[in-house]
Design a binder for these strands. Structure first.
Lengths: 252, 252
DNA sequence: CGCTTTTTTGAGAACATTCAAGGCATGTGG
DNA sequence: CCACATGCCTTGAATGTTCTCAAAAAAGCG
């Protein structure tokens, strides 16, 4: 049984954001302006489209596993994905959450260095690795874009090292909420400015190097302090943005 | 007064590892086989050489500072460099140590995201940023090499997140020692297999998210357990490599 | 509605930190 | 060559933040 199911064919004949002639999956892609394909012209896009598959993965399913052969990379086109590493006794560190436009699964080596799992229902664009790297040789714009993405990721990772190595539990939670509301997070911010976390307390804990209980206690404290409001569905409104920034320990 | 001093001119006429016609600094460069220039042919190397300066920085001096304009990138050609980020109250996280062949100071944005400081006396190769990116457009091999370097760094950063978020103090020290002895570390490994750390206990602590005291206590425990031997000068011999691996919590 | 899963809350324990002092090496000046 | 100052490392005792263990409350789901 494959963990990955091809996405159902979309409505044909509907013009997408780009020119016609593209496969439905690409023409309607919500992430095309964010992903590595965004710098390609229409002709190149058609070429790229011929190499890829569009997939759906339901929440909780694995996309690829650490140590597996890295045969394909994926662009997240909707939903939220997490990547994590495990220690032998089960301790888990989530190394990143990924949103629409993010590319995952294109490591330097032959195998994936982390496991990827769908947090919500997810749609993905699958690039066979060999064909993608061949394409990079032809289209330098693609490689430039990839380089930019990897650099961004590295910078984010360095900020996360500061968080994991030196910040208190409270500061970690504050930083996390601010990052979600300020940056990243397409699909996390409601129209009314409310934040939908999507991931569980346990996931947040494993991302911030804490336990579920500590995360829960910090949320409670922030709520009682009037910095955030949490509604019945767990959606979060940041009331004291400045207060939260003060609590985050800030960059410097 | 500049923090960076040009390196003294080398002996002229001495043939380096590469063909002649190169500036002494490049011809004699100990890191040319490791750095991003390693994939260039002689003609390209001559071109690259015309863009760069060779510098010396003494131990403890700053190379560039967080938030400064990222006008130049640097390749470490000898010695050890650390990069760190600070919180407003002085808490510090070292995000990486850099050895011969490593490239630092080429961020995505306009400013350096971290401060770089010489741990030992260091020699550097300085690339003005604009000219380097112009050169990348001409020599795709250079950009490919950079991409590979950044990917390596990202993978290292992800392993460090696992360490900082989930490993115990003992496991962090064990992992650190193994990494130095296995990988990285040109100039850290003596002929007889002994490890020279170069950096202080405080630096190690700020790299591993611990305090100086905890680092010291862990070293003592490892020494008393017979896993490592520390001589009068602080050089370390790893006696129980397998034992250390068991203590490191290992990848999975 | 009953079941499972997740989240919250509480009490006690643990690991690492903080605070404090002593040891050891290096370097300087008498 | 020794005395002394300095900086870094080590060791000890006490504290604290976060974790572990445990149970209740809330939310999701058939």
């Amino acid at each position: 049984m494959s963990r990955l199911e091809p996405v159902a064919a979309g409505h044909s004949g509907r013009a997408g954001a780009r020119s016609t002639c593209l496969p439905d999956g690409c023409a309607n892609c919500m992430a095309s302006h964010l992903a590595i394909c965004s710098d390609l012209d229409d002709e190149q896009m058609i070429h790229l489209s011929s190499l890829i598959d569009h997939m759906k993965v339901t929440a909780g399913r694995m996309i690829f596993q650490e140590c597996d052969d890295a045969v394909a990379a994926f662009t997240v086109t909707s939903g939220v994905v997490k990547q994590y590493k495990l220690l032998s006794d089960g301790r888990r560190q989530i190394i990143g959450f990924h949103f629409a436009g993010d590319l995952i699964g294109l490591p330097r080596g032959a195998t994936y260095p982390a496991t990827a799992e769908a947090v919500t229902d997810v749609t993905l664009c699958r690039f066979p690795r060999k064909r993608l790297s061949a394409l990079m040789d032809d289209y330098p714009a693609l490689e430039k874009r990839l380089l930019a993405k990897v650099r961004d990721e590295l910078q984010t990772a360095q900020e996360q090292m500061l968080l994991l190595g030196r910040k208190t539990a409270q500061e970690r939670i504050a930083t996390f909420l601010l990052h979600l509301s300020d940056r990243a997070a397409p699909g996390c911010l409601d129209a009314d400015g409310r934040l939908t976390l999507h991931m569980s307390r346990g996931d947040i804990a494993d991302y911030l190097g804490l336990t579920t209980e500590t995360v829960s206690r910090c949320f409670t404290r922030l709520r009682k302090a009037g910095v955030i409001q949490v509604d019945a569905h767990g959606h979060i409104a940041i009331v004291g943005h400045e207060h939260l920034e003060a609590l985050s320990g800030s960059g410097d």
